[in-house]
Write a protein that binds this DNA or RNA. Structure first.
Lengths: 343, 343
DNA sequence: GTTAGCACTCTGAACCTTCGAGTGCTAACC
DNA sequence: GGTTAGCACTCGAAGGTTCAGAGTGCTAAC
């Protein structure tokens, strides 16, 4: 459908988009001829631009103010015009360098990743922590705290840890706790967490458990532990967006920051990219968060082995430098996979 | 020194401060007489205001624009004029309600706490996660991940968990890992984390360890695990600050958000309140973060038993409603202590 | 010591003008 | 028929002017 465009229209559209990405300002017919080596007069360009507006690729803020690419134009640009470069040597090294200094706490790594994404892209970096459900069970441990509190620690294959304090009304002796975790570790070894949940329900119904109090307690405890908290998101570099001229307005800024406070929506958006092969792009209003209708999101999943763990990405203005940012997101995702994966 | 003020000056100063807290605008002599039941003419008030300016309690943005309380005035207000109310029934219930719905993951609780602080105060809620060093060692566990990776999990008395992945060049069999953790758990039981560190160094020097490879490996592993990452801070409700009229200016907003990006500075500030008995207040420039010179911070430590774990607080504009926020911070700190403490 | 009166200052809003960039249309050109 | 020059027109941004309102400081009277 977009392919009804002639070669010349495409060139002009591309020129406009690139100009707009650079300047954040409506592009006029003259600047297109000037900045680009086109041997056309402004008048001709104007005609073409008028057609492009008709087709929904351009919009004019008001009659005398040049034109601005629409979401549709950016979509077309990303799909058909954009040549994704491979990542800059320099940027690659920078990413590497950031990771090198890192300790090995998983949470820290994720946070650092969002920092990397933000500082190299100059936009907002975002990382959704691995969902437990997508993971393979490795081990469960119970630690007795004071009184009747028990700390349950759940470890997945990739080293993600989830811990919570559970209250058990009766005190359970430490030896029993050890036995309980042995029992569970045996029972659940190698299952994915979602399988684990079913398995626990099954097991609770079985006769051998129904009459063994220790086992049934163990199952109950593990059930409590598994009940997953909201996914964690690391967002870094929100200030960067304030540098963008199109948000130099108090109300728009508020709007954006409010959107970021509701992390739930963000998570839903990013979750949808879990199954994507590689890089995924949402342009402007495509992301369905109407508060973010001037922002675009570039995401990529990260994995451990063949197991997708989570999603990371960059949020920037719709007019961001896609050619520059896409490889950054892609490469960072691969690095993170490597770090968390079965190296 | 501030006590050279006459009773009347104090009343007027208080009126001005309260007016300014309400309106965020310079206060003129007429509004003082009008809003307050003072039986004085504006002219008299003007004289007093002039004196107060001389003393450094008031400042005038320009000749014809009323006066604004200085940091010094707010300090005086908080120290001498303010009657801290006890917490609102309603707010107390609201805090309780928030906690009730909560799971028991420690991280989640802390995050929810900062959310509570923010949503009830309408300012910014902030919670510094417990530093490990301030904690009592409870248990260490090693979990074998794929390859040569080992996940080390460190648990403190209060249920705070720290985990990190350590790389050991030689594969260690699981049984050995269990033995190692038994050895360490025994060795380190009941010590605070800072004592633990010394103990490990001592032990590494001792003869019995020097020739036992298992033990010495165990110690090395534990050393790696203990090396503490940066303290974690939970900040919530940054948008609230944008509602404040005095920050309805793009540059000031940027300034503030930048200050929040550098969490290190915030942590240093809050760390200084660890030893405070109860509520602590930094007004305006007193917080030494010059980027935050129009903000005030109200903090309170939270504890488990007699052991101070961390600090939480509220950041708001210097003209915030101290009488309303102080009890909120205080009460929340006590609730959190209760939740984490040895109930 | 307190107050009324008054001249003075400063800001912010409203309004106007001007300038420049850009458009769309028409008519001429290749 | 596509391309271009020319021209009238539109709109917003920037700067200047005016005006009203709020507030001050001073002086003189109470």
């Amino acid at each position: 459908m977009g392919d009804t465009l002639t070669e010349r229209s495409r060139q002009i559209l591309e020129a406009i988009i690139e100009d707009y990405i650079k300047t954040a300002e409506p592009v006029g017919s003259r600047s297109v001829t000037r900045r680009h080596g086109l041997t056309l007069s402004p008048a001709t360009v104007r005609n073409v631009m008028s057609d492009l507006e008709e087709l929904g690729f351009l919009a004019s803020p008001h009659t005398s103010a040049g034109r601005v690419p629409t979401d549709k134009a950016f979509r077309f640009y990303v799909d058909s015009l954009l040549q994704v470069r491979s990542i800059d040597e320099e940027q690659r090294d920078e990413i590497r360098r950031h990771y090198r200094g890192q300790g090995h706490d998983v949470g820290e790594i994720l946070k650092e990743t969002s920092r990397i994404l933000s500082s190299i892209s100059h936009y907002i970096g975002i990382v959704v922590a691995p969902r437990f459900t997508a993971n393979v069970f490795r081990q469960i441990e119970f630690v007795k705290l004071c009184g009747s509190r028990i700390l349950a620690i759940l470890v997945s294959e990739s080293g993600v840890v989830q811990n919570r304090i559970v209250e058990s009304n009766e005190g359970i002796p430490s030896e029993d706790l050890v036995r309980m975790s042995n029992y569970l570790n045996n029972l659940l070894k190698g299952l994915t967490i979602s399988e684990v949940k079913n398995r626990i329900l099954q097991e609770m119904e079985s006769d051998k458990v129904r009459y063994d109090e220790l086992m049934s307690r163990a199952l109950k405890l593990s059930e409590l532990t598994l009940d997953e908290p909201d996914a964690e998101v690391f967002i870094e570099g929100q200030v960067n967006i304030l540098e963008q001229p199109e948000f130099a307005d108090v109300d728009k800024m508020k709007e954006i920051f409010r959107a970021f406070e509701e992390k739930g929506q963000l998570i839903t958006l990013l979750d949808r990219c879990m199954d994507a092969e590689r890089v995924n792009i949402f342009i402007g209003a495509e992301n369905f968060l109407n508060r973010m209708n001037r922002l675009s999101v570039i995401t990529a999943p990260y994995a451990s082995g063949r197991n997708t763990l989570g999603v990371l990405g960059v949020i920037g203005p719709t007019r961001m430098g896609y050619d520059r940012v896409i490889p950054i997101v892609d490469y960072t995702a691969r690095m993170l996979s490597e770090l968390l994966g079965s190296g």
